[in-house]
């Protein structure tokens, strides 16, 4: 008996050979029908926009991004490096009061039944490569640092109220922020488990279109990528959108310029 790999590959070659390879789009040479012959990539028409008409970080692009983010129920803030620490300090405790022991049987949605906060003051996790100036003003907030070398456990992450990360790139037209796991964005678990995600995006990181972002990310395709467009959501019940399921239920996007 041949192994599955060999058999599947030969089935495919047989299937393509028997049905000649005219399936290739315009540009494919017809000679490639026989088994085992490496076919040249066919020409793919790429008439779509490879970039937007507005420059990254331009006012027009930012305006679109904000519109899309707000539409998907993300909270958007604009600030400067000078005011950023204070803004972050304000955002953390602001939401952390809602935190509850998620997973316990008496857990209820904050909208349904507010319960007493589990800890009087907020705790925030940050990836170790984050700009230290950002967290400098978070007086009264417990700041914990996570890294690949010294990761917090899932349970520990579940204890904190919020996470602050940077971002790799943002796409205006789709209201998307992409994290690529570098030291200022952290492990994927860090931006996932806490209930509030504060994501700081430099305005020069905002591009207009998806292709611009993909080409940028393609420089390091092996990095683990998380594309985030608003807080987690579901439309599984009568297609009615409910924001906030398993991922962070609150997404703050801080635009820094």
């Amino acid at each position: 008996m041949t192994d599955a790999r060999t058999e599947i590959l030969s089935r495919i070659r047989g299937a393509l050979g028997s049905a000649d390879s005219s399936a290739g789009a315009a540009g494919t040479t017809g000679a490639a029908g026989t088994a085992g012959v490496t076919r040249a990539p066919s020409v793919v028409p790429r008439e779509y926009r490879s970039a937007g008409e507005h420059a990254p970080g331009s006012d027009a692009v930012l305006e679109v991004l904000i519109d899309r983010l707000v539409d998907y129920k993300a909270e958007v803030h604009r600030t400067t490096p000078k005011d950023l620490p204070r803004l972050l300090a304000r955002l953390i405790p602001q939401r952390s009061a809602e935190r509850q022991v998620v997973g316990s049987s008496d857990y209820r949605s904050p909208d349904v039944l507010p319960t007493t906060p589990s800890t009087p003051r907020g705790a925030v996790v940050v990836p170790h490569g984050i700009d230290q100036a950002w967290v400098s003003a978070m007086g009264g907030v417990e700041v914990r640092t996570d890294s690949r070398e010294a990761p917090l456990s899932a349970a520990e992450l579940d204890e904190v109220d919020a996470v602050v990360t940077a971002a790799r790139v943002a796409v205006a037209e789709t209201g998307t922020i992409v994290l690529d796991g570098e030291a200022d964005q952290g492990r994927r678990a860090v931006s996932l488990v806490p209930d509030v995600h504060v994501c700081v995006v430099r305005t020069d990181q905002v591009v207009q279109t998806v292709p611009e972002a993909v080409r940028l990310l393609g420089a390091d395709p092996e990095r683990p990528l998380t594309w985030i467009s608003g807080p987690s959501a579901t439309s599984d019940i009568e297609l009615e959108r409910v924001e906030g399921v398993h991922g962070p239920r609150t997404l703050h996007v801080v635009l820094l310029s």
């Binding site: 998907y72 796409v171 994927r188 990528l225």
Partner: peptide
């Protein structure tokens, strides 16, 4: 939607 809330990509 213009984009779904989350897309994850991983390589090995």
């Amino acid at each position: 939607e213009r984009m779904n809330p989350y897309t994850s990509m991983w390589t090995g």
